[in-house]
């Protein structure tokens, strides 16, 4: 369909989207634009959902952080909340034990650093091995970290947690933009990475690592880079979550359930696509907090896990890649 000779003259935006989003047709571009516009104008059309959407934005960050390593390379992490929780606890412990007025420009970078260090300790030794080792270590990692919070309860407040963290804001409109904009920026960066050659190699590792290795590429190095990006993302999200609630407890930021929710979000949205998990976070949180509540507080979780299971069996690519390709096939579709 598209003519090779015309490309040099094409507009920058179009060229950018072609390179990073494949070759979207105008319906795809239009729907992506509408979605973005919808997100940016939520306060005007869905004011009562601002809190839920703000929360979804933070979870979108976590899901993207999970996706860049696990969704792309198929090294499934069951303990990503160790990274975000570690960052949140770093913020909390600094504020609680060192100086209650410590500025965010100090705590934020330190929290991200903590996420990186935790990642290096727990995950890096296993990245050169096969996937299940990585999964086991990440699972144990989050269990250990949770236990450490209790063992060092003197500094962490144990199960009661730390309340000294300042809250971002109580104005829901502001809260929404404070979470949405960092999320979109991180999303933009990760989409670019995901669509670049690095992203392609990461996905290829997920499909057939041996083949990639035999072509002379050092896959461990790529996995490490992906993991580093993931840890930074989780660190940002974790520190944001601490300020979102203004308090930190193991169950809010750390326990293994939180990690499994990240997996679920990425699965629903579409693993390995970055944009998918963003949408997945909104779908997941809205289902959980607004729609499935008709089943009661336990029943909605049962329904939620069954929905995720449905996706794994029948719609492995996730909902957004599915929709994207459906829109792509409107008007004759791409001639691939």
């Amino acid at each position: 369909m598209s003519n090779e000779y015309d490309r040099s003259g094409e507009p920058v935006v179009q060229r950018f989207t072609r390179e990073f989003l494949g070759e979207p047709n105008r319906y795809q571009i239009a729907s992506a634009g509408v979605a973005l516009l919808a997100l940016l104008t939520v306060p005007f059309w869905a004011g009562q959902y601002l809190y839920v959407f703000a929360l979804a934005s933070i979870w979108a960050i976590f899901a993207m952080g999970w996706d860049i390593i696990s969704g792309h390379t198929n090294y499934i992490s069951f303990g990503h909340s160790a990274l975000s929780g570690g960052a949140a606890y770093t913020t909390g412990v600094l504020v609680h034990n060192v100086n209650p007025d410590m500025a965010m420009y100090i705590t934020f970078p330190l929290s991200i650093l903590a996420a990186i260090v935790i990642g290096l300790l727990f995950a890096v030794p296993t990245l050169r091995l096969e996937g299940p080792y990585f999964s086991l270590i990440t699972l144990l990692g989050v269990l250990v970290l949770t236990q450490l919070v209790y063992i060092y309860g003197e500094y962490t407040g144990g199960e009661l947690g730390i309340t000294a963290v300042s809250t971002l804001t109580y104005n829901l409109t502001n809260l929404y933009y404070y979470t949405l904009i960092p999320m979109l920026l991180i999303g933009a960066v990760l989409v670019v990475v995901s669509q670049s050659n690095i992203g392609r190699i990461l996905r290829a590792i997920g499909e057939n690592e041996a083949a990639i290795e035999s072509s002379g590429i050092d896959t461990t190095r790529f996995k490490l880079w992906a993991f580093l990006m993931s840890a930074i993302t989780m660190g940002i999200g974790g520190a944001m979550l601490a300020h979102f609630y203004g308090n930190i407890t193991p169950s809010t930021v750390l326990v293994v359930d939180r990690s499994l929710e990240m997996v679920a979000i990425a699965v629903i949205g579409g693993m390995g696509t970055i944009a998918g998990p963003i949408g997945g976070a909104f779908v997941f949180i809205i289902l959980r907090d607004e729609v499935l509540t008709v089943f009661g507080s336990t029943g909605r979780w049962l329904a939620l896990w069954l929905i995720v299971l449905f996706f794994l069996v029948f719609l492995r690519d996730g909902i957004f890649p599915f929709i994207w390709s459906r829109i792509g096939s409107i008007g004759g579709g791409r001639d691939e």
């Binding site: 499934i76 499994l260 679920a264 699965v267 896990w305 995720v308 299971l309 794994l312």
Partner: peptide
């Protein structure tokens, strides 16, 4: 293998 891995833990949660 990866899908099985995740599907079985979702089944356990359910």
């Amino acid at each position: 293998v990866v899908i099985t891995f995740m599907a079985t833990i979702m089944a356990a949660l359910a």
